[in-house]
Structure formats: C-alpha cells, structure tokens
Simulated assay, not measured.
Amino acid sequence: MLDALTLDQIRMFVTVAEAGSFRSGASRLLRAQSAVSHAIANLETQLGIALFDRSGHRPVLTAAGLALLEDARAVLLKVDFMKARARGLGEGVETELSLVVDTLYPLPVVAAALKDLRDALPAVRLRVTTEPLGGPLQALRDKRCDLAILAGEDFLDPRIETEALQPVAIVAVAARGHPLARRHKASLSSRDLADHLQVVLEDPTPLSQGRDFGVLSPETLRVGTQDAKRALILAGVGWGRLPRWAVERELADKHLVSLAASALGPAGLAHTATYLARRTDEPLRAAAALLRSALQRHALAADVPAVRRKGARGDAVR
C-alpha cells in the first residue's frame, strides 16, 4: 500500500500540519476541505497510523504524525529540487542575475567574481545590493534575488541551500579622539564598553525581532547601513564593530583604533562565518553557476586565518 502514496497526499499532510487545521490547509491549497480531509484519511490508512488526533476542536499531530512530518518535508524538498534542476537543464543562459550580499562580506571578493562573470557572459544584466542581518535571507525567501551571501548562523533556513565561503574578521573600533581610543592598548571589559554609546546595525526584516547581536552598551545609536555606521564611528559619535576589510586604511592611518575588548573576542577580534545561499526550488542556471564558482574561487584566495577554513562556527555580532 505504501507504493500508492502520492506527492499530493504528502503535500496536503505538511500543509495542514503547518496551517493548524484542515480548513486553513485547504484554503492554502485552494482545495475543498472535504477533499483534503479525505486525502489525509486515505494517507493514514495507507500508512497504517493516525497522523492527527481529531478529538479536540482543532486537529493535533500525533506522536507518529510529528515523527513523519520531517520525513514528509524532506520528500517535498527533494522533489522541488529535482524539478528545479530539470528546469535548469532545459533552459539556456539567464538574461539577468541578482545577488544580495550581507554588509559584512568583503566587496572586493564580490567584485572579482562579478568581473569573471562579466568576462565570460557580458550580455547578462547584473543587479547587486547589500543588506544587513536578515536582509539577504529575506530576499531569497521573497524571490527578490537568485543568490545571496549570508553572514553568521542566525539566519539559516532548511529551504535555503548554503555553501560555506570564507570567515570574515570583525574588529571593535573607535575614532582616534574617542575616550576608548586612549585605552586601546589595555584590555577593555564589558563594563568599560557599556559606559559609551555603541553604534549598531538595525535589521530591516523581522527575522531578528527581539534579539540583539553583540550589543553591550545600554545606550545605542541604531542605523540601517554599514556606511552610516562607519561614518558615525569615524566621526567619534560612538564605538562599534566593523568588518576589518572595510576599515583597513583607516586603521593603518590611525583614524580608527582597534579596541582590545576581550568580551568581543581575543583582542576585540572575532570571525563570522559566511555562506553562499540559494533557494532549493529554483534551478541553478548558467550565469548563477558561473558566479557561484567564481565566488568560491576568490573566497579561497582571500586572506583569512587557516584555522577558520576548517569550518569553525562564527559569531553573528553586528
């Protein structure tokens, strides 16, 4: 009887489980409630188990239903991936390619990869934007981009396929004239940092609602872009954390001073993992595949500590 299972039944099971009722599930599927109820009843008969407890006002997953839910989701993901791959094999080079990059990720690496793509496929129109925190993942969820680069491990999704790129060094800094800069050679505690305003990035999405990453000061100035954060820190408004690649010149010219904040990593330095990401239900077409290879190649060539290339977990501080 198990051979008689259909993808339609499995999709109905997952949809009802996620929607919380047969009525809501049927609405999402644009199907009659009676048809959905009948299909799931048949599925239960074929499996020989009850997937839902229907004794209450709303159906509740049984222990068996809960155990099989992840298997059902995995089946649907595999099917979506197969369909996407088939579409990709039958299609030519895309005319446009969109990439959303986390603001922490080194733009020189992105630029080098995009140059490789332009040299190989000059007719492909490119669109590149940068967004902080949950922005790149939300762009993928909303299908606003073909590929995204995520930073940290707080914004992952089982429907999004990820591949590790290189970790990014994040350094705590303050302007040369800031009070904290006068103590840059001394180890700074959390209390030392909390006495001064911290400039932090604000998530443009609801994905981190109620959470802060690496915020130590009770007084904060929240901004929407990395450029604004960098400008305010350079002006001495407050201290904050920035990707080291973006402030190498300012650190060399001593316009910015790195802070030995032990609470934020050894000598105030930490590393954040980064990932190239794409939707599993969309095909990886020719231009996207070329850009993916170029990003991986240039990421490997980037100057990062060898220990971090072994997959060490990075923090997601901003």
Rank of each mutant, 00 (worst) to 15 (best):
Gln296Phe: 08
Asp142His: 07
Cys145His: 02
Arg141Ser: 06
Gly238Phe: 00
Leu114Met: 14
Leu156Gln: 13
Gly240Arg: 00
Leu165Phe: 09
Ala228Asp: 08
Glu131Gln: 14
Phe155His: 08
Pro218Cys: 11
Gly20Val: 03
Asp192Met: 03
Thr274Met: 04
Ala175Gly: 07
Cys145Val: 10
Thr103Pro: 07
Ile233Gly: 02
Lys229Met: 15
His298Leu: 04
Arg318Asn: 14
Arg313Ala: 15
Gly236Glu: 00
Arg249Gly: 03
Glu96Tyr: 09
Asp192Leu: 12
Ala72Gly: 13
Val215Ile: 05
Leu97Glu: 05
Leu61Glu: 02
Arg54Val: 09
Thr130Pro: 01
Thr15Asp: 02
Leu264Phe: 12
Ala260Thr: 09
Arg279Ile: 03
Gln209Glu: 13
Glu219Ile: 09
Val223Pro: 08
Glu250Phe: 10
Gly134Glu: 09
Val110Trp: 07
Val200Gln: 07
Pro305Tyr: 13
Ala41Trp: 12
Ala273Leu: 00
Tyr105Cys: 05
Val60Leu: 12
Asp116Pro: 00
Ser98Tyr: 01
Ser217Tyr: 03
Leu114Pro: 03
Ala181Ser: 15
Ser24Gly: 00
Leu66Ile: 02
Ser189Cys: 11
Glu202Thr: 11
Ile49Gly: 04
Pro305Gly: 03
Arg241Asp: 11
Arg183Lys: 13
Glu18Met: 05
Pro132Tyr: 05
Asp71Gly: 00
Lys78Gly: 03
Val317Ser: 12
Ser187Met: 08
Val171Ile: 15
Val307Tyr: 13
Phe213Trp: 12
Ala267Gly: 05
Leu77Arg: 15
Ser34Phe: 04
Ala113Thr: 01
Arg182Val: 05
Leu121Ser: 04
Asp102Asn: 15
Ala186Pro: 00
Arg11Trp: 07
Leu61Asn: 09
Leu76Asn: 13
Val60Thr: 14
Ala246Met: 07
Leu291Asn: 10
Lys143Arg: 15
Arg28Ser: 12
Arg125Met: 13
Val247Tyr: 10
Trp245Ala: 02
Phe155Cys: 05
Ser55Glu: 13
Val173Phe: 00
Ala270Leu: 11
Arg183Cys: 08
Asn42Val: 12
Ala228Glu: 12
Arg309Cys: 06
Arg54Gly: 02
Asp227Leu: 02
Leu165Gln: 12
Pro106Trp: 04
Thr95Glu: 13
Ser190His: 06
Gly20Pro: 06
Tyr105Leu: 02
Gln33Pro: 09
Val171Lys: 09
Ser98Asn: 12
Arg127Met: 12
Ala273Arg: 06
Leu126Trp: 00
Leu291Asp: 05
Ala277Phe: 01
Ala67Lys: 11
Val247Pro: 07
Ser98Cys: 11
Thr6His: 07
Leu137Gly: 06
Glu282Trp: 11
Leu51Lys: 05
Arg127Ala: 11
Met82Thr: 08
Pro108Cys: 09
Asp227Gly: 03
Ala123His: 13
Val307Asp: 11
Thr95Val: 06
Pro122Tyr: 11
Ala302Glu: 14
Ser21Asn: 12
Leu291Trp: 06
Arg54Pro: 08
His255Cys: 02
Glu219Gln: 11
Asp119Gln: 08
Gly240Glu: 01
Asp53Arg: 03
Arg285Phe: 02
Leu7Cys: 07
Ser27Gly: 10
Ala41His: 11
Arg159Asp: 15
Ser98Ala: 15
Gln198Pro: 07
Gly25Asn: 06
Leu259Tyr: 10
Val168Phe: 11
Gln198Trp: 01
Gly90Lys: 09
Gly177Pro: 01
Ala316Thr: 13
